[in-house]
């Protein structure tokens, strides 16, 4: 005889199955039907979090659903990126990526790889600039490079972390111009700025959004920017290209989902991000930061990632960096 307890439990299991199946059915009908997680690999207050926070209101409105910003720091971004890559490909876990994604492929053993993602969109590119103190003897990039060439290892360049993007960017400058810097690693761009303000280093390479306030305040001089065109915020500053080399070391922010996410969901996310990019709040935010709003769709971002991959691999090989 089947006990009453048994019947109860069978009924309960059946109920749960029924609940799950209807839940699944609903999920297929409408996307999104629950909040989307935007996974940020960096600490609150940083450029990536600010990018997501500025997009968030317009993004939610266009999406017709909630978006949660989740900071998951550690491992130079690799923890969050691996988390996103291994998340269920249902469109509910979205990651933000920047050039570090490509760099860490070659400098860590964490298995991060841009090919594990489906790209959605790029939002903005903030070019990098070479900054020195306003009272330093170098008035132009050429003078700075000539001095560095004549005195190998004498110029101290601050970077935002060993083997991180801007360290590699400085190595990229070495590769292109044949100079030799002494690289001093700091934890992030903020401490680099402080070190330069205090005169503890001779120069730094950082995104111009970080540098601009100090240029306006008369403390720093930007000698060159990394973008292919001159930046609207500092139109007098020449580009690397004008000195005869290509080095795209600016910080761009793009969004990705795990490989295998259905195309129609990527499109929903893409359209919402695109609408958010066109919001006044987003444009006004980057107008002050020297950020160039740059739209690339899924294919465009994939092609850009491949180009970035080639550029960074060349620089990393030149510098002799190995995964550690």
């Amino acid at each position: 005889m089947i006990s009453r307890k048994r019947i109860c439990s069978i009924l309960m299991v059946a109920g749960i199955l029924l609940f799950l199946s209807t839940g699944w059915g609903a999920a297929q009908e409408k996307f999104p039907n629950r909040p989307i997680q935007l996974i940020i690999p960096w600490a609150p207050g940083g450029g990536g979090t600010l990018n997501a926070q500025t997009l968030q209101p317009a993004f939610e409105k266009a999406l017709g659903g909630g978006a949660m910003i989740v900071n998951k720091t550690g491992g130079g971004g690799t923890i969050a990126w691996n988390f996103v890559a291994n998340a269920p490909p249902d469109g509910y876990t979205v990651g933000i990526v920047n050039p570090s994604l490509v760099v860490t492929q070659y400098t860590t053993k964490t298995g991060v790889n841009f090919k594990k993602f489906e790209p959605i969109i790029t939002t903005v590119i903030v070019p990098a600039g070479v900054a020195v103190k306003a009272d330093s003897p170098w008035k132009t990039f050429k003078e700075f490079i000539d001095y560095s060439k004549a005195n190998p290892g004498k110029v101290n360049m601050a970077n935002s972390g060993h083997a991180a993007m801007y360290h590699m960017g400085n190595v990229g400058i070495e590769m292109a111009t044949g100079v030799k810097f002494t690289h001093i690693p700091y934890k992030g761009s903020g401490p680099c700025v402080a070190a330069l303000l205090g005169g503890h280093v001779d120069g730094t390479l950082a995104e111009i959004s970080t540098l601009l306030p100090y240029v306006e305040g008369g403390k720093f001089r930007i000698l060159a920017v990394s973008s292919s065109k001159r930046n609207f915020a500092i139109p007098n500053v020449p580009t690397f290209k004008e000195f005869g080399f290509d080095l795209d070391v600016g910080t761009w922010y793009g969004y990705v989902v795990p490989k295998g996410t259905p195309k129609e969901r990527i499109k929903v996310l893409h359209d919402a991000f695109k609408a958010a990019m066109n919001s006044e709040a987003f444009k006004a935010f980057y107008a002050k930061q020297g950020g160039v709003i740059e739209y690339m769709g899924p294919e465009g971002l994939m092609a850009y990632l491949e180009a970035q991959d080639k550029q960074w691999k060349k620089i990393i090989d030149f510098g002799g960096f190995k995964p550690e």
Binding site: A43, G45, G46, T49, L50, Q53, E216, G217, F285, K288
Partner: peptide, 20 residues
């Protein structure tokens, strides 16, 4: 870390934290 978030808050409100 806390001050980094305050800096972020200033930036997002359109105020440039810096010497000026």
């Amino acid at each position: 870390a806390v001050m980094a978030v305050i800096v972020g808050a200033l930036i997002i409100h359109g105020v440039t934290p810096g010497p000026l």
